[in-house]
């Protein structure tokens, strides 16, 4: 009995650790399921479309004239000569996913607001393929309504980017921002991890996909995992940081996402640039999110409760001061004690 009592602290701790482990594993399995769901939502552009009713959308009926062919993987028409019904495959890049389109920023538009009205006749005329596609500034440039998005600054940054310098006009806004799918993200999405997954999927659409990458080059795309071998905890970095945080340079603080994509040699590689008080991460998405949380949930929750935690960067000023005061008191106490001991 006496022997048992001797070792009680060790066993209590062992049982506590075991209990904590069980709680942790249960919590982890629940969370990993949620993470997988988030990733699936972020990438659902690539998933087969579900049957849904879109009639509540303003131009759904008119758009259906186009989407009855362009909204699926195959389309049918009657051959006017043979009077037979023909079914053909729709080219993947010409398929518009209804669910994604009606959730996108451009959901209120008719197809023929941007495309020629001549597309309303079938078969489409051959010269329509030469139709110039509008870029973002054709509609959004110089418009007061969109001033907060700073499209002019974005354009300026993009002109200096590696994408623009290497590929000139071949690299359009469309390459990253598909107008049929693009959805404003960082400003509207409450979950920072979803924003990161969505934004990184934009880069991976080419840098992780050989056929898209080779639209502008004959070279093979580099293996991103091998190229980022030097990065400790690679998976966590990829899930917690957007590619653009390290691969861009912000010229203007007003733009939320920097568009000056840097050549690879100029990308951030020094740990301290993120893991310090002047963290580059706190200049963009994380700064925006922290400000948002503070304004909507109050200062305390903004400091204590946030998803955007970066070791070395999110230092809490008050906790730092408090810890220094405590250390100061301990040292002072020791000095006073030592002095009294010596004097006696």
């Amino acid at each position: 009995m006496v022997k048992k009592l001797n070792y009680r602290p060790a066993w209590v701790i062992f049982i506590l650790i075991l209990f904590a482990g069980i709680v942790f594993i249960l919590s982890y399995s629940a969370n990993s399921k949620a993470d997988r769901t988030e990733a699936a939502i972020a990438l659902k552009e690539n998933k087969p479309e579900q049957k849904k009713d879109y009639s509540e959308h303003k131009h759904a009926t008119e758009n259906e004239n186009c989407l009855k062919c362009h909204g699926q993987s195959k389309y049918s028409y009657e051959n006017s000569e043979s009077k037979k019904k023909n079914t053909k495959k729709m080219y993947t890049e010409l398929i518009i996913n209804r669910e994604v389109f009606y959730e996108s920023n451009h959901r209120e538009f008719k197809c023929i607001d941007c495309h020629s009205e001549d597309y309303q006749t079938f078969p489409h005329q051959g010269n329509l393929r030469m139709e110039a596609k509008p870029n973002c500034l054709d509609c959004h440039g110089g418009d007061e309504k969109y001033a907060k998005f700073h499209f002019e600054n974005i354009e300026k940054e993009f002109q200096e980017s590696a994408h623009s310098e290497k590929h000139s006009e071949d690299f359009t806004c469309w390459m990253c921002h598909n107008p049929h799918a693009y959805k404003i993200n960082a400003r509207s999405n409450e979950n920072i991890k979803k924003t990161i997954a969505y934004d990184n999927a934009i880069c991976l659409n080419c840098h992780g996909n050989l056929s898209n990458y080779q639209l502008l080059t004959d070279k093979a795309n580099p293996n991103l995992l091998t190229k980022h071998d030097w990065l400790p905890n690679q998976k966590l970095h990829f899930l917690s940081v957007r590619c653009v945080e390290c691969h861009t340079k912000k010229i203007n603080d007003s733009t939320l996402v920097a568009h000056k994509i840097l050549p690879k040699k100029e990308a951030v590689r020094n740990c301290d640039q993120c893991h310090s008080t002047n963290s580059v991460l706190l200049a963009s998405l994380y700064k925006y999110k922290i400000k948002e949380v503070r304004s909507t949930k109050g200062f305390f929750k903004g400091v204590i409760v946030n998803d955007s935690y970066v070791i070395g960067a999110n230092r809490n000023y008050y906790l730092n001061v408090l810890s220094l005061i405590i250390v100061g008191f301990v040292i002072l106490g020791i000095i006073i004690h030592a002095v009294i001991r010596t004097l006696n």
Binding site: F24, S27, Y28, A30, N31, S32, A34, D35, K193, N233, K235, L236, L239, I304, V305, N306, D307, S308, Y309, N314
Partner: peptide, 16 residues
């Protein structure tokens, strides 16, 4: 092994 830390735990980030 931060990938094993639940992204959310109770009221805040698991990593935090």
């Amino acid at each position: 092994y931060p990938e094993v830390i639940p992204s959310r735990f109770l009221w805040t980030s698991g990593l935090h």
